[in-house]
Amino acid sequence: MKALSHAVSDAAVIAWRNVIKIKRVPDVLVFVLISPIMFVLLFAFVFGNSINIPGGSYREFLIAGIFAQTVVFGATFTGAGLAEDIQKGIINRFRALPMSRSALLVGRTVSDVVYNALSLLIMALTGLVVGWGISSSVLDAVAGFALLLAFAYAFSWVMAYVGLLVPSVEVINNASFMVTMPLTFVANTFVPAENLPPVLRTFALWNPVSAVTQATRELFGNIPPGTAPPEAWPLQHPVLYTLLWAVLLVAVFAPLAVHRYRTSGRRA
């Protein structure tokens, strides 16, 4: 009981430490608040009129994709933060403290949920300005945001593990692009998955990022009436498929990351 309450309070201390950086570290502010605005505006105005969505507007279609992409990119931040803790040596301070062994990682992933929530808020407001809207119920809309955050949380455990493996912040920032770019572009984020060439199409249909995007579109009521229902199973059950992935990612990567944190033989 005491161990559990320590685990929670230790993680909360770490999360607090990360969250206060939003106002201190310009990089964080730009990453969390400014670049999402840029994304929405750029995509809305550059591609907004050049791609046709049958029966709907591309901006409506686009926003959920940008949301999904942004929270997936956000996971890189988790890994970069941990890589920085190692690089700057502060991880040795933590490892010599009687704190819960999961606290550094849980605290980090939780604070990144806060970052992601702020990013989503900013993007939603920007979206509203450029003509996007939610045409479902409040409850559905909340469920949409919650699903995005849940998937983002799970994915940040992947990057947490990677962050503990790489030698420096630069490496993870560059290497993660090789994962996050295909994941977020070979998907239904910016064009309907059905329009992609065959191999990419299969990948896109089973890509969890597509499911998150599809689920969000449905929950926000951003799918024009009369659109043909998707043919792939994941996109027919996007909420379930997303949650399955989220559970799977946490179940695999959280233990790996905690183990790595505990055993990585860093030096005083």
């Binding site: 430490r17 206060i20 700057k88 040795n92 301070r93």
Partner: peptide, 16 residues
């Protein structure tokens, strides 16, 4: 860990 204090060779403090 409950009973020790450590100051390593390289300062382990949070810059921010």
């Amino acid at each position: 860990r409950r009973r020790i204090g450590l100051s390593g060779q390289f300062a382990a403090v949070d810059e921010h």
